[in-house]
């Protein structure tokens, strides 16, 4: 079976071409100037503006030579065809791009791939497979922790990391006594997941899924 990246013209490419057409058309309309930013990213990078980088992604060593501007998110999606990680806002506001780097959750849209030489990156593809779901993936399915599913890979990566952060004793904004270990309450989970936005509003089911995996009643 061919992989999505093997297709001559993928659905993604078609969408990119279609998007470019829209920008070209609307950039001639002065009234829309506020919504059409100059696309200077079309500026080509010279050889000096590329860098080699080696990442350990989901247990595989991947060597890349990237335009320095490439975010970790774009490296995963556009260069490694790991499209499970999603691009939502591309500005660190929505959390759809959340992955784990060296065990810590980060917004992959707000970090450059070349800044992660030798790092271990875990994406949704590295957590589980359709045949062997990660417990958090299984709990999201069981508790209906999503509707459209676009934010879900980021939600699940974040949720897995949140439980590890609580276990490691890292406090949050809603923790009571700073000198005590944080508790695993629904209030704690909601605060800690606030960097992951779900426009469908599946939040309460996500808390249920996390609570089940944590093995403690909410």
């Amino acid at each position: 079976m061919s992989k999505p990246g093997d297709l001559e013209i993928s659905r993604r490419d078609l969408l990119i071409v279609a998007g470019a057409t829209v920008v070209t058309t609307s950039s001639t309309m002065g009234a829309y100037a506020q919504t059409v930013q100059p696309i200077a990213s079309a500026l080509p990078a010279t050889a000096a503006q590329h860098s080699p980088v080696t990442l350990d992604v989901n247990g595989s060593v991947r060597k890349l030579d990237l335009d320095n501007r490439t975010t970790l998110l774009d490296a995963l999606r556009e260069h490694l065809q790991l499209t499970g990680t999603k691009k939502g806002c591309d500005h660190g506001q929505c959390g759809a791009c959340t992955v784990m780097v060296d065990g810590q959750r980060v917004n992959s849209c707000l970090t450059l791939a070349v800044m992660h030489q030798g790092a271990k990156v875990t994406t949704i593809e590295g957590l589980g497979t359709p045949e062997h779901l990660h417990p958090m993936q299984a709990a999201f399915v069981k508790h209906d922790g999503y509707q459209c599913g676009y934010c879900t890979p980021g939600q699940i990566c974040s949720a897995v990391a949140v439980l590890a952060e609580v276990k490691a004793g890292i406090p949050s904004h809603v923790s009571g006594d700073l000198t005590q270990a944080p508790e695993l309450t629904a209030t704690e989970l909601r605060e800690r997941m606030s960097g992951n936005i779900c426009r469908c509003g599946a939040y309460s089911n996500i808390v249920d899924a996390m609570t089940e995996v944590a093995g403690s009643p909410a």
């Binding site: 959340t98 810590q104 959750r105 980060v106 974040s158 949140v162 949050s172 923790s175 606030s194």
Partner: peptide
Amino acid sequence: LSRALLAGASGQLRNK
């Protein structure tokens, strides 16, 4: 200082 840090940004951003 702990309280102020925890009141800012998100878990993902504070990690970075």
